[in-house]
Write a protein that binds this DNA or RNA. Structure first.
Length: 267
DNA sequence: GCATTACCCTGAAAGC
DNA sequence: TGCTTTCAGGGTAATG
């Protein structure tokens, strides 16, 4: 969603300057590298793979951005007041700024030459993106799941198996597919795996259609929050009735992350 | 090889 | 009312 709203505002624009806050994100920001990649270059494309945004420049460099939990990439007028926790500012022609704002600093902002992108530590470890139908096939998913002894919920969060499913959508997809989050991967039957495979795609597409899940911090490039949090079936609904079977939604902790599920219809 | 735990960080919410 | 503590989780790294 962020990519979708960034694209029309960025593609074709030229970067005239780059400033950074000096504070580190998950890794330090390499100001010199960002400048070398972006200043004087034009934005050729904006793409996404997994949870990473890829902004490709005419300099044959690519800006790799991960928003973590609280990150925002915003396009604002150059004169707009600098929001607190603004860690990078890309001045654009046309009087606009691209700004990276991230209070919790769990995000990532790095640049690579196009040739090094695939082997970067960020992207080289990613599994297929569920919305990339050519790579996220049912055969792939079933085989990967069968090879895993972990809880299926934990499996879904492993970005090296599939890239882009976060904690919210993992719970939602399992509920849609009527599978217990505690089921071990290799114990998920083929028919269930097929339902889960489809449910993951549906959940991600639905989140995009609803313009993102603004559970707390998410906003798109225009600063608008999404609506998807209003249509979640289980996430954040502990104690409330399941809309499918009426049983109370429960919460448990797996791999130090909250999981929400319905004990009635997820077996 | 895998699971578990701690860590980074800030702001909101809960607790006292 | 106001301060302190807890919790949230993206990913990574250390430990069991």
């Amino acid at each position: 969603m962020v990519a979708r709203t960034l694209r029309p505002r960025l593609v074709g624009r030229r970067v005239t300057a780059v400033e950074t806050s000096g504070l580190a994100l998950r890794r330090p920001i390499d100001r010199a590298a960002l400048r070398a990649a972006a200043v004087g270059a034009r934005v050729d494309s904006v793409a996404r793979t997994g949870k990473y945004l890829l902004i490709e420049f005419s300099s044959a460099h690519v800006l790799v951005a991960h928003l973590g939990m609280t990150g925002r990439l915003l396009v604002v007028p150059a004169g707009a007041p600098r929001a607190e926790h603004t860690h990078a500012r890309f001045a654009l022609d046309g009087g606009l700024d691209l700004r990276f704002v991230d209070p919790r600093r769990f995000g990532v902002l790095r640049s690579y030459s196009r040739t090094d992108l695939e082997t970067s530590p960020e992207l080289s470890v990613l599994g297929p993106d569920p919305l990339d139908a050519a790579r996220f096939t049912l055969d792939y998913f079933t085989a990967a799941l069968r090879a895993s002894k972990r809880d299926v919920k934990t499996f879904l969060l492993d970005q090296s198996r599939l890239a882009g499913v976060g904690n919210i959508y993992a719970s939602e997809a399992l509920h849609r597919a009527e599978i217990s989050p505690r089921r071990r991967g290799h114990r998920v039957r083929a028919a269930d795996a097929a339902r889960l495979h489809a449910a993951i795609v549906v959940e991600l597409q639905r989140a995009i259609e609803n313009r993102g899940t603004s559970f707390s911090d998410y906003v798109d490039a225009d600063g608008n929050s999404g609506d998807n949090q209003n249509s979640l079936a289980v996430y954040g609904r502990e104690g409330e009735p399941c809309r499918r079977c009426g049983k109370k939604i429960r919460r448990l902790v797996q791999a130090a992350r909250s999981t929400f599920y319905c004990p009635g219809c997820q077996r």
